[in-house]
């Protein structure tokens, strides 16, 4: 059974531990600006919304890549960037309608969530269980996926 990240913004306190854990795991630094998960703040509503790639079935990023640098991880279901193949053209950053693939000008490559290979550090670091890593069919990402399907222009890859 593949698992995926479930995010419950109602439980998020905006502590940014997830961003710290993500940047440390993936970039070797404690720097929220380098995190693949981002917490968005809605001051007026007093609400924090953690947000990252849902590893959507449409895989717009993977389909748009001109050099085959984004591949499906069969074990976790994540779509992973092959850093040595990525040329840094950034087409995936505009193709992803969720805005979850970003360009890193320091490396000249793109970065996105890869579920830390099946052990997502954001979920581990979250003190309030706003981010959990659970069986895929139970996640609240269905709504997001439904939206992706609604605006779908193409057959799914899986």
């Amino acid at each position: 059974m593949q698992r995926s990240l479930q995010i419950d913004p109602g439980k998020c306190t905006g502590c940014l531990q997830c961003e710290m854990a993500c940047s440390y795991e993936n970039e070797g630094v404690f720097n929220p600006a380098r995190s693949r998960i981002k917490v968005f703040t809605f001051h007026q509503e007093g609400r924090f919304v953690p947000y990252t790639c849902t590893q959507c079935d449409e895989a717009w990023c993977m389909q748009a890549c001109p050099v085959d640098a984004i591949v499906l991880n069969a074990a976790t279901g994540s779509k992973d960037i092959l850093e040595d193949v990525c040329v840094g053209c950034k087409v995936c950053t505009i193709a992803c309608p969720f805005g979850t693939v970003n360009y890193n000008s320091d490396t000249g490559k793109v970065i996105k969530c890869d579920l830390c290979g099946g052990d997502p550090k954001c979920a581990e670091a979250c003190p309030t269980q706003a981010i959990t890593y659970i069986n895929a069919d139970e996640t609240g990402f269905d709504r997001m996926r439904a939206w992706a399907g609604k605006s779908d222009n193409q057959p799914r890859v899986q």
Binding site: K38, P97, S105
Partner: peptide, 14 residues
């Protein structure tokens, strides 16, 4: 800008 620009597509397309 390099962060989250894909969401512009998301907003337009939806």
């Amino acid at each position: 800008l390099t962060q989250h620009i894909g969401v512009l597509r998301g907003l337009i397309q939806s």
